[in-house]
Design a protein around this nucleic acid. Structure first.
Length: 552
RNA sequence: GGCCUGUUGGUGAAGUGGCUUAACACACUGCCCUCUCAAGGCAGCAUUCACGGAUUCGAAUUCCGUACAGGCUACCA
């Protein structure tokens, strides 16, 4: 076919496309950004719930764009209508907001480079396809599903590369007359790339994360436009990222083998190619099989984005975790720069893991604990209340009714240089601080305490008489020691160990009795702080409650 | 079958030919501190970098082969 014929063919196939590519090139001019600014994008398909891996990739998009003074935008890749799930798009935007991963522009955020929804860009794709046909880089292919699968079977049998290329690409050189004939018969067709590649030649590709890679040139006539004239991912992404002026495509590792195709598409279209950064998947060791696999939504609760919200894992802590897997040197930096935040760190693609990253639950947990330990009592209160309003309304009401006390309890041992690390999720506060709210304590009273040990309430009642809630911690503890001695208890565990026969026990035993009666548990933050907040009256009530419930 | 990529302790990993008898962190174990926890302090935790060979005075680091794992091989993304 000569050029005139190709023009005729393009018009025949897409008579309704009136614009030429210059129109779009002018409509979406180069972005006015400073040197080195990165334009990244998150391109999810609305096919179901969001996976941690998706979140991670969006997180990377965000940090790299942000730190370089660039743009991070959201583009909905919904070219496959069959897989679309109802509410899928709203789910994506909702999760992104919930996780504080906020694009600068894009679907539902606005911007000059829209539409940011691929299903609304069909005309654009067809315009560029027309150009490719005219340039001789694309052609209609009328092969049926049966033909395709028989070729595939043959290739499998011959153990050769699978796909439509070389002599398998039978419609590659159809004459204009033949095409017209088929169109007249209403034969369905797709538009395929007329790949100029030679598989015997090698292309070298530089991936920002993985480094240099060598591939055979792409020589397969990949489908660009499907039967319904919507684009495949390959074609759509190249057009969109060119028109939206993406500089860095950060995406999952599963795409590396299509890099040669994508580079070829950029070349054939006359575009400057984007830079690619392929991130490794988040993996986990399967407990049953012992093999390493991708985090799975079905098997691992940690895989689903919703899980973090429901469990009450703080978003900032999750960001910290994502940052530690994004750049391997982040963790150490953060440890040495405790007063700084993620945005102060300079991320670098070369510091990103090349192979899979194993999901480390205990590390996340630790990060969460550190997060909580650095928050003030009031902050923890407010955030927990917000969580409870969503997932435990009853508790939310109790929190609101007991705000003052609750904040006091949550603030215990927060002042020092090494604050307590006792909670890792909002959902743990209720149980961990059950003694803070009378109503809750009465209901749950001592249920969690299953020790056989019965404590001497008379002794504790006597102690209550000498309790001074208005002194220093040191003075208080001296009083306890004195009280211990006068009741035949050793003033320190050491004394007791030396002469166990001489005493009934030691101060620790007395403290334990107070602690269990007052809090219902053997472990708690500083006892005296708790006693002070509760006050004598409530302590008395708890002694009575203990008698009722435990001693009967 | 073909094409890519990866493989360092329980985990995340540092490491780019001599500074490595392998950093750091999490987890774990023991001791100390101590009214309980938490925190903290101290100590322990790969003599070895999947395996085999080659290059080199010298290799976790370079090369070749093997094994294992992951990905792609759709008119899905």
């Amino acid at each position: 076919m000569n050029k005139e014929e190709r023009i005729e063919l393009a018009e025949l196939l897409f008579p309704n496309i009136n614009e030429n590519i210059e129109y779009y090139e002018n409509k979406y001019p180069k972005r006015n950004l400073k040197e080195g600014a990165m334009v990244t994008r998150y391109g999810p398909s609305p096919t179901g719930s969001v996976h941690l891996g998706n979140l991670f990739s969006a997180f990377c998009d965000m940090i790299y764009a942000k730190q370089s003074g660039g743009i991070f935008f959201l583009r909905i890749e919904d070219t496959d209508q069959k897989r679309a799930v109802e509410g899928g798009i709203e789910n994506i935007t909702g999760v992104l907001k919930g996780f504080n991963i906020l694009p600068n522009e894009g679907y539902s955020y606005g911007g000059e480079y829209g539409s940011y929804k691929q299903s609304e860009r069909t005309l654009i794709y067809q315009t560029y396809i027309k150009k490719l046909i005219i340039d001789g880089y694309a052609y209609p292919c009328f092969m049926t599903e049966e033909e395709l699968s028989s070729i595939r079977e043959e290739q499998e049998l011959l153990k050769t590369k699978i796909g439509i290329y070389g002599h398998y690409a039978v419609d590659r050189d159809l004459s204009l007359a033949e095409i017209k004939e088929k169109l007249k018969n209403n034969e369905e067709y797709v538009i395929r790339l007329k790949s100029p590649g030679d598989a015997n030649k090698q292309v070298e590709i530089i991936d920002c994360i993985k480094g240099k890679m060598k591939f055979p040139e792409h020589d397969i006539d990949t489908v660009l436009l499907k039967k319904d004239k919507t684009p495949t991912y390959h074609f759509a992404h190249v057009i969109d990222d060119h028109l939206m002026h993406t500089t860095h495509v950060i995406r999952g590792d599963e795409w590396v083998s299509s890099i040669p195709l994508h580079i070829q598409l950029f070349k054939v279209l006359g575009f400057e190619p984007v830079k690619y950064a392929h991130i490794a998947p988040i993996t986990i060791k399967d407990k049953e099989t012992g093999t390493i696999r991708k985090l799975s939504k079905r098997k691992d609760p940690w895989a689903g984005a919703k899980f973090y919200e429901e469990e009450g894992i703080p978003i900032d802590a999750l960001h910290l975790y994502l940052a530690t897997i994004a750049n391997t040197n982040f963790e150490e930096w953060y440890l040495n720069n405790q007063d700084k935040s993620i945005s102060d760190f300079t991320f670098d693609f070369t510091k990103q893991a090349i192979g899979g990253t194993s999901f480390d639950e205990s590390k996340l947990n630790n990060l969460c604990k550190t997060y909580f330990s650095r928050k003030s009592g009031e902050e923890v209160y407010n955030e927990t209340l917000e969580y409870a309003k969503k997932y435990d309304l009853e508790y939310a009401k109790l929190l609101e009714a007991n705000k003052e006390d609750m904040i006091k309890f949550l603030s215990i041992e927060k002042d020092g240089p090494r604050p307590r690390k006792d909670i890792s999720k909002y959902s743990e506060v209720k149980e961990e601080f059950s003694y803070a709210i009378d109503e809750l304590f009465i209901k749950e009273a001592y249920k969690k305490y299953d020790g056989d040990k019965k404590y001497d309430t008379d002794l504790i009642e006597n102690y209550l008489n000498i309790l001074n809630t208005n002194c220093s911690n040191e003075e208080w503890f001296n009083d306890v020691k004195e009280f211990a001695l006068s009741n035949n208890y050793a003033a320190s565990p050491k004394d007791y160990k030396k002469e166990p026969d001489k005493y009934k026990g030691h101060v620790g035993d007395i403290c334990e009795a107070i602690r269990v009666i007052v809090t219902g548990r053997t472990k708690s933050p500083d006892l005296y702080s708790i006693l002070k907040i509760l006050g004598k009256e409530r302590i008395k009530e708890r002694i009575n409650l203990y008698k009722e419930v435990v001693l009967k």
